[in-house]
Simulated scan of single mutants.
Amino acid sequence: MTFRAGIVLVACAIACAHGEPRPAELLRERPAPGVFVQAAATCAPSEPRIPLNDPPWRGMMLLDYVVREDGGLGDVRTEILDGKPPALQAVATVKEWIASSCRFSPATLDGVPKSVELGQFIQFGPPRREVPMLQAGMTKPSVTACAGPRPLMPQDARERALGGTIIVQYVVETDGGISDIELKAPGPVVFFRAVREWLSGCRFEPATDAGRAVAVRIVQPFIFKLQ
């Protein structure tokens, strides 16, 4: 901003010395990014439940849906990430839950409602593996290489002037690789995919406990700002 102001002042000095008006194009400020408020949901019950008389299914799925400008729900999809098929009953239960048990307020940009695509992870049964969070006495894992310093703002979100924060959970393995990348809380799927792609290209120095490399689970927020 200081550099830009300097250009305006120099241009003005030259123009005024010749009796010319200050050039209007140099005075235009870049429009401030809009104020974006993410869509919100209230669900009761807070998570889907398979009826007790149905065969149990154990696994995890990504629930992907659109919250429209009027707060309505649309384009509900599921992706099985872990678990043994068939998962037909689990998928039907999740779709019924999001459609009948949740109420949404739409996202807004400068007070104008906008449609957004959100996603969340649904877990049925215990996780397939237990990985601890970072504990006292452990050394923290550190990044050794990534494709870039941070996840890139998706072009679709940039064009629609969408920003926001997502909370992602992932495991840093003993060899420094990344696994089990999940959305910790509901958030924009477009941002989660950007984070997942970025994390998948990263390598870490693993956490250690008493000098021994250990796998740890990390929970981290990622902020996507409008520029």
Score class of each variant (00 low, 15 high):
Arg30Cys: 05
Ala90Pro: 01
Asn53Thr: 14
Lys84Arg: 15
Glu20Ile: 10
Trp57Ala: 01
Ala92Gly: 05
Ala92Trp: 02
Val67Pro: 00
Val91Gln: 08
Pro55Tyr: 02
Tyr65Pro: 00
Ile80Thr: 07
Ile80Ala: 03
Asp75Asn: 13
Pro21Gln: 07
Phe36Lys: 00
Thr78Glu: 05
Thr78Pro: 02
Val91Ile: 15
Thr93His: 02
Gly71Arg: 04
Gly74Glu: 07
Met60Val: 11
Val35Pro: 00
Ala40Leu: 12
Ala24Arg: 15
Val67Trp: 01
Phe36Cys: 01
Ile50His: 01
Arg58Met: 10
Gln89Ser: 13
Pro86Gly: 08
Ala92Asn: 08
Arg68Val: 02
Asp82Ile: 07
Gln38Leu: 11
Asp54Pro: 00
Glu25Gln: 14
Leu62Pro: 03
Val76Tyr: 02
Tyr65Met: 04
Val76Asn: 04
Gln38Cys: 09
Leu62Ala: 15
Ala41Met: 13
Leu52Cys: 09
Gly34Tyr: 02
Ile50Arg: 09
Phe36Pro: 00
Val37Thr: 14
Pro51Gly: 07
Trp57Phe: 09
Gly34Ala: 13
Glu79Thr: 14
Val67Leu: 03
Phe36Asn: 00
Asp70Lys: 09
Pro21Val: 07
Glu29Met: 10
Asp75Arg: 13
Ile80Tyr: 00
Leu26Gly: 05
Pro21Gly: 07
Gly59His: 04
Tyr65Leu: 10
Pro55Gly: 02
Gln38Ala: 15
Met60Leu: 12
Ala39Pro: 01
Leu73Ile: 09
Arg22Lys: 11
Asp64Trp: 04
Arg49Cys: 10
Thr93Arg: 07
Val67Thr: 04
Leu88Pro: 02
Pro51Ala: 08
Pro21Ser: 11
Arg58Glu: 11
Leu88Ala: 15
Pro21Ala: 10
Pro85Gln: 10
Leu63Val: 06
Gln38Thr: 12
Leu88Asn: 14
Lys95Phe: 05
Val91Tyr: 02
Asn53Ala: 12
Val37Pro: 00
Gly83Ile: 11
Val66Glu: 07
Leu81His: 05
Gly34Arg: 08
Pro23Thr: 08
Ile50Gly: 02
Tyr65Gln: 03
Asp54Tyr: 13
Glu20Val: 11
Pro31Glu: 10
Ala90Val: 06
Asp75Lys: 11
Asp70Ile: 10
Arg77Phe: 08
Ile50Phe: 03
Lys95Val: 11
Arg58Val: 12
Arg58Ile: 12
Ala92Phe: 03
Ile80Met: 07
Val66Ala: 05
Ile80Pro: 00
Glu69Thr: 12
Asp64Tyr: 04
Pro85Leu: 12
Glu20Leu: 15
Gln38Ser: 15
Pro55Asp: 04
Asp54Ala: 14
Trp57Val: 01
Ser46Trp: 10
Arg49Ala: 15
Arg28Gly: 07
Glu20Trp: 15
Val76Cys: 03
Glu69Ser: 08
Pro48Tyr: 03
Glu47Thr: 08
Arg30Tyr: 06
Arg68Phe: 01
Phe36Ser: 00
